[in-house]
């Protein structure tokens, strides 16, 4: 059981390296221009990052929405639906480079902000950001101005600032002359998010990430997920207590399926994978609600 977090960390690291396989780009400050840039990756990874070898689904979605009413964003929508249906927020737990960065920052030993009723309320904010910055503003500008405005990328996305903005400004001196107020704003947002993650576990994912919000809509139907074998579960609540996300139950919209709850389950009732598992009859497992 002890090697599970390590396996997840290795998968996170591998996905970050695969998404950003154009390592030479960081030194030159040049974007990758190969054919794979037409494909989206499932996690949040800025396509203006010099290392990126594929496209960010959120950036692609905003730009596709900017082509309305001429073209519907079918390709990105279909991609997000299929990823949501197969993996859902497993992507957040295993295949998001910015999630990895946040988790590593949270390892810095400082006092931590624990989840509470207030963080649970804040977790709804990401749906507002999805509706306003990813959908409404790009669609509004496309319809009224005929101008593409990827509002989430432009005003909020800390992954774009960290992976794209800062690395390009560091590598290309000519960009230093054109940075202005927007760069200052986005740098401030990025620093606030990164510092916030030191004190609050995955603060960006929990409160701000619209991609996590999209995938969370598939929580009930996603094929791969952390699940609870109801016949074994004794409803002790240790899994929810252990979880650092704002979950109310294992596998709900806030669950990123990291599987850390499996280590504390006294009945080994939590498993990772598809539904349906042959389980022992409830009367044989010896647990009851009274064990709470």
């Amino acid at each position: 059981m002890g090697d599970r977090p390590l396996k997840r960390r290795l998968i996170q690291l591998a996905s970050a390296l695969i998404y950003n396989a154009n390592m030479a780009g960081f030194g030159k400050g040049e974007l990758y221009r190969g054919a794979t840039k037409g494909l989206c990756v499932p996690g949040l990874n800025c396509y203006s990052c010099p290392g990126a070898v594929a496209a960010c689904p959120l950036g692609s979605l905003q730009n596709a929405l900017s082509r309305l009413p001429r073209k519907a964003p079918l390709y990105v929508a279909g991609f997000l639906v299929l990823v949501g249906l197969t993996l859902g927020r497993v992507v957040c737990g295993f295949a998001c480079p910015f999630g990895l960065i946040q988790e590593l920052l949270h390892k810095i030993p400082t006092p931590k902000i624990r989840k509470s009723r207030w963080t649970r309320y804040l977790s709804w904010l990401k749906y507002g950001i999805l509706a306003v910055f990813v959908v409404a503003i790009p669609v509004w500008y496309a319809w009224t101005e005929g101008y593409p405005l990827p509002a989430f990328c432009k005003y909020i996305c800390p992954a774009g600032t960290l992976e794209g903005g800062w690395s390009l400004v560091a590598a290309r001196p000519e960009y230093r002359g054109v940075v202005g107020g927007l760069f200052g704003w986005k740098s401030a947002v990025c620093i606030a998010v990164l510092v916030g993650c030191v004190f609050c576990y995955r603060a960006f994912c929990r409160f701000l990430c619209p991609l996590g919000a999209i995938y969370s809509l598939f929580a009930r139907v996603a094929l791969v997920a952390v699940r609870v074998d109801k016949r074994l579960c004794c409803e002790c609540g240790l899994c929810v207590e252990r979880c650092k996300m704002d979950v109310r139950r294992v596998g709900d919209r806030e669950c990123i399926h990291c599987g850390e709850c499996r280590a504390v389950c006294p009945k080994n009732a939590i498993y990772f994978g598809r539904e349906k598992r042959i389980c022992q009859p409830a009367e044989e497992n010896g647990c009851s609600v009274s064990e709470r």
Binding site: R33, C40, A54, G59, P73
Partner: peptide, 19 residues
Amino acid sequence: DMQDTMRKAVRLCLECVGI
């Protein structure tokens, strides 16, 4: 759409990264 995504992703979007 894939070509559209490709065209956008291979060009640096200065405002997208906040420059």
